[in-house]
Write a protein that binds this DNA or RNA. Structure first.
Lengths: 334, 334
DNA sequence: CTGAAAGCGCTTACAG
DNA sequence: CTGAAAGCGCTTACAG
């Protein structure tokens, strides 16, 4: 049983209320009693009991991180790095985490059943969809949340952190163009995810602004997994249209694509260059090593927590929309 | 504000105490009032407030997971998979997680400063060392804990889950022997970690029981990282002793070793076979793909949580020592 | 089998 | 600037 507020109060000869005030940096405490209390706090290394405080303030001091279900699930290295950032930052502010794996199914019921939201101070959700029911859901519940990934339409009432998808994709494709490629295929993601659209937008923009021909036939759409990258690459090859490079909107798909290319006896990058997106560790170990655009997953995790805590504390003066720069990671597949 | 125990009590015409009893499956509640209460619980989808219960019972309902610091840190894919298992299982029992990254330094102070242990119901710690101060530390604190990895000496008073290190290593090396290798080098880990010793023990046992010569000169010791695997492989090559295979006690080191071998123009597996240990995803993407022993990281995470919750609940009748089988994963590097 | 009451460790109007 | 008191939502002896 560690030392409690009552103990401190008694020894300082003040009331618990007063101790509480100095702990919480309330104004209106005389310098004298503040010092007296603080000395005791030091002496006993007193730390307020988070759970009790939570009860009194109706806060749980725990954050929910809704992990996406398949196809892009937590084993995705990108999320793991993200999670790492979240975990560390939360610990820094001594928040706990709740990590329920929640299916992506577009059913509110699943949400409502699954998680005891009323015992969470806020949640981090990922992978915004084009029409994302979770936004209104959490707004109705009046539960603070931040999105990893921006929603399609810019809204002042939702807080998010994201990598610069359009810019990153643009940069990636422009690099391909600089290397002399003119026919550039694209393995994009499902249309329902905002990230797919944004990255595809960057691709298209780069093509058009560099006066290349945009060719519908060179576009296929996968599901962010290695398997789907492999499949879609096979389809692309089977179709017989010529291209000398392919841009996949996720590393996992790019890695699947490389495998398909090799299987078909097409040399990477000599006969077909491959550009990924994400910057997962795995890309440094493929043959050839994957050239890609790196998302700062760890930092995104930290920022998400910072924002969420601001939201929870009712702090209005911070940046509700943070976009972090991406960085071209030149390796050997282009 | 969701429905509370008081609300249920009022509507059922009983006291809060009674409601509490039926919620907690206390004996001695008449079938009649139990039913009355349960109906209301259903009707309002009442869920007890974990925080309040925690306060009353002096439990926080959160688990600590002490992530190891460098060299083997959380970005290690093995831990990430482990964490995934932990997170899911904890959520299933609606426990929260606290994930402070704590340095591995052998200083109690770091521990004491870092974490507010008195607000954790129990902790999971990883990577037991040969003489691990954490055991007595948590025992003195009287905080339930489970180890991922068995301690060196079998102790009835500590609870752990682990993969079968000796058996797994034995199997790996025996497979190498079956493939005709007789001079098998070993990149082991630092001596202070129990896992290093155990895996090395399996290696040695396989060598000796198959009547091969155990050669000290073929043993080097790394730090579980890719970088150190790379370094140690270079040293092994520089020493000039001949060998046709190498067993690394972690995949990360094995992957580093492959890189070194390639750099020196030694073909894998033709001129030197490489066997890893762990079964991380990355191994499926190296050239050649890594043959290894797979540890069930996810399951280990689940088991760790199950054990810890048993411990917390004062349940004595469960298996304090769980060892999960490992599985040879035959790919192309042997 | 059930209820009244005290308590878990804190916070927060209210009053002074 | 400070204290007494009620309250957060539950649990648990104690008494009946």
């Amino acid at each position: 049983m560690s030392v409690t507020m009552k103990d401190i109060a008694k020894e300082a000869g003040v009331s618990k209320a007063t101790v509480s005030r100095v702990i919480n940096k309330d104004a209106y405490v005389s310098e004298n009693t503040r010092k007296k209390v603080m000395d005791l706090v030091q002496k006993y290394d007193y730390k307020p009991h988070t759970v009790a405080r939570g009860l009194a303030r109706d806060l749980s001091h725990t954050l929910g991180l809704m992990i996406p279900g398949p196809p892009r699930d937590i084993t995705d290295p990108f999320f793991l790095e993200f999670l790492h950032g979240v975990g560390n930052k939360a610990a820094e502010y001594s928040y706990s985490l709740s990590l329920p794996t929640v299916s992506e199914k577009d059913k509110r019921e699943l949400y409502e059943e699954g998680i005891n939201f009323n015992q969470l101070d806020g949640v981090i959700i990922v992978n915004p969809k084009v029409n994302d029911f979770r936004i209104e859901y959490f707004q109705e519940e009046d539960l603070p949340f931040v999105f990893l990934g921006r929603p399609l339409k810019n809204r002042d009432d939702v807080c998010w952190v994201d990598g610069d998808n359009v810019g990153g994709a643009y940069e990636a494709v422009e690099y391909l163009i600089e290397q002399g490629h003119e026919k550039i295929a694209c393995i994009t993601g499902t249309d329902e995810f905002v990230a797919s659209r944004l990255r595809f937008k960057g691709y298209k923009q780069a093509i058009e602004e560099n006066n290349l021909e945009f060719d519908e036939n060179l576009i296929v759409s996968g599901e962010f997994t290695r398997e789907s990258g492999y499949q879609k690459m096979k389809e692309l090859i089977a179709q017989g249209n010529s291209f000398s490079a392919v841009f996949a909107v996720s590393d996992s798909m790019a890695i699947g694509a490389i495998r398909a290319l090799k299987e078909e006896g097409i040399a990477v990058p000599e006969e077909c260059a491959v550009m990924g997106f994400d910057g997962i560790d795995l890309g440094a170990y493929t043959e050839p090593r994957l050239t890609t655009v790196r998302q700062p997953a760890y930092e995104l995790g930290e920022e998400a927590v910072e924002s969420l805590i601001n939201l929870i504390n009712g702090n209005k003066n911070f940046n509700w929309h943070k976009v972090l720069d991406l960085e071209l990671l030149i390796r050997d597949s282009v």
